[in-house]
Simulated scan of single mutants.
Amino acid sequence: MRLLIIGAPGAGKGTQATAIAEHYGIPAVSTGDIFRANIKGGTELGKKVKAIMDAGELVPDQVTDEIVADRLGADDAASGFLLDGYPRNLHQVEALDSYLKAEGLSLDAVVSLEVDPELLTDRLLKRAEIEGRADDNEETIRNRMSVYISQTEPLIDHYRQAGLLVPVDGVGEISQVRDRIFSALDARA
């Protein structure tokens, strides 16, 4: 299976991505993890990403596209993958679509974890309090939600029109959400 998971900050993407990948026997591919591994490994790409991040800038789409394409070309991703954190904008959607088309592949589904933004804001504020994250204040969290909504809405529309979107209620216990995801994906198979 070739999958994407989309969800607002705090929706549980990372937690669910791990479970989905294990369930379907595919690697979970997180751009954040890829960046950190390349930096730690001292690769050319890692050096480039580290310099960008050290300057406090976002990694440009072209660099992110290269890193993802390189990762999807790895042997363990030959039979499928779950992308978490990519694509984040329409440019990256186009880059991913082009890569997959060139490889004779296509996505099977895009899981969209649906959670009310107000609930997520409360959840993230509680997490910040528990974990002592001073930078996760209400203003910062609301800004992240706003950016997510403005950047992701076009992606959701794109995948809905392509017939790939699988909306899943992301509210509830981790196991309940996981079971909903598996049921929705299995129904598509």
Rank of each mutant, 00 (worst) to 15 (best):
S79P: 04
S79T: 14
S79M: 12
S79L: 10
L82C: 03
L82I: 06
L83G: 04
D84L: 03
G85F: 02
G85S: 03
Y86H: 07
Y86F: 15
P87H: 09
R88V: 01
R88D: 02
L90T: 12
L90G: 05
A95L: 09
L96E: 04
L96I: 08
D97S: 04
S98E: 15
L100F: 11
K101L: 07
A102F: 02
A102V: 02
E103Q: 15
G104C: 08
S106G: 14
L107F: 10
L107Q: 10
D108W: 08
D108T: 10
A109G: 12
V110I: 11
V111W: 02
L113N: 08
E114D: 15
E114Y: 08
V115P: 03
D116I: 07
P117M: 03
P117K: 00
P117E: 07
L119K: 05
L119P: 00
D122K: 13
R123I: 05
L125Y: 02
K126N: 15
R127L: 04
A128I: 00
E129G: 06
E131S: 15
E131L: 14
E131W: 08
G132D: 01
G132P: 01
G132C: 02
G132I: 01
A134M: 11
D135W: 04
D135F: 07
D135Y: 04
D136G: 12
E139M: 06
I141E: 02
R142E: 13
R142K: 15
N143G: 08
M145W: 00
M145F: 05
S146N: 12
Y148C: 07
I149W: 03
Q151N: 15
E153Y: 05
P154N: 13
L155G: 07
I156M: 14
